[in-house]
């Protein structure tokens, strides 16, 4: 962070953001008056019932979806040429036609980083998550968990100002999920990137996040904020602690009401 900027200036500043879709039956409001500040180096998780517009919000932050009302700003860092954001998609979205190392080097390649340098960066990240010896494999040759690892380090190798993760572990089986959560924790404690993390899983939100934002069912609004004051570095073992259970119960109490409401609203 540069000295000229106040320490409190948020890394991501979303102000009264709304998203409307025109449909045949009139306007559909996906997200309404949603504001959120994410501090530099903060890990913020957003949870909410299905269809609450949390993925839509993330895509708007990423610039992949237009904003109907309001504004979203990502504050650039002091380093020039660094990308503002990189997304980790739920469906992995690593390119089947590129080898793992080419996939990881994709962001730098698009920014014009030289071949040797970007492959070095990619190799560093592959080694770091234990995929070094699969560098020249194609995605169809590896498992879902490995694909999502590649997707995560593709974002990290791009070294963005903020990392946007859209239910990155949603498609994985329970065991693989825990392993990658653990890995994610480890990498995050080391890099301290600003992260916006969308998830369905309360456990995941409480385990990873500094703050958990709860959203209401359609139209998505900000319902509640929970500051998670579990000590860092965290580990999977903490999910068994009484404090963890307390946070979880607190959030679930409000979330379950929303989920019921959402289910009743849509037959």
């Amino acid at each position: 962070m540069t000295a000229s900027l106040p320490a409190a200036a948020p890394k991501i500043a979303a102000r009264s953001v709304s998203k409307h879709y025109p449909t045949a039956d009139g306007t559909m409001v996906a997200l309404e008056d949603f504001s959120l500040d994410v501090a530099d180096g903060e890990f913020v998780c957003i949870v909410g019932p299905s269809g609450c517009g949390k993925s839509t919000f993330l895509r708007m932050v990423a610039g992949l979806e237009s904003i109907s009302l309001g504004s979203i700003d990502i504050r650039p860092g002091s380093e020039r040429g660094k990308p503002l954001n990189s997304v980790v998609f739920q469906e992995y979205a690593i390119f089947p036609w590129k080898t793992l190392i080419e996939n990881v080097a994709f962001g730098p390649q698009m920014r014009g980083v030289g071949r040797a340098e970007r492959l070095d960066t990619a190799r560093y990240w592959l080694d770091r998550v234990g995929l070094g010896k699969f560098a020249d494999y194609y995605p169809h040759q590896i498992s879902g968990g490995m694909k999502q690892r590649v997707s995560i380090i593709r974002a990290l190798a791009n070294d963005p100002e903020v990392l946007l993760m859209d239910e990155p572990l949603g498609a994985l089986d329970a065991q693989t999920r825990v392993v990658i959560q653990e890995e994610l924790l480890r990498i995050w404690e080391e890099t301290r990137k600003t992260v916006l993390y969308i998830t369905h899983s309360l456990d995941e939100a409480v385990l990873l996040g500094d703050r958990v934002i709860l959203m209401s069912a359609q139209p998505g609004r900000r319902l509640a904020t929970f500051r998670i004051e579990l000590p860092r570095p965290r580990s999977i073992a903490m999910t068994n602690s009484p404090r963890f259970a307390e946070y979880r119960a607190q959030i679930w109490e409000q979330l379950s009401a929303e989920v019921t409401r959402a289910m009743e609203a849509r037959p």
């Binding site: 895509r59 990423a62 610039g63 992949l64 990308p83 954001n85 990189s86 997304v87 998609f89 469906e91 979205a93 690593i94 390119f95 036609w97 590129k98 994709f106 962001g107 698009m110 920014r111 593709r154 791009n158």
Partner: peptide
């Protein structure tokens, strides 16, 4: 999702065609 990934990682125009659309 591949088009979104390409865009998010900075592919535009020719590089989008060459790295995402054609393959």
């Amino acid at each position: 999702v591949y088009l979104m990934a390409g865009r998010n990682y900075g592919a535009r125009g020719w590089s989008m065609l060459r790295h995402v659309i054609l393959p």
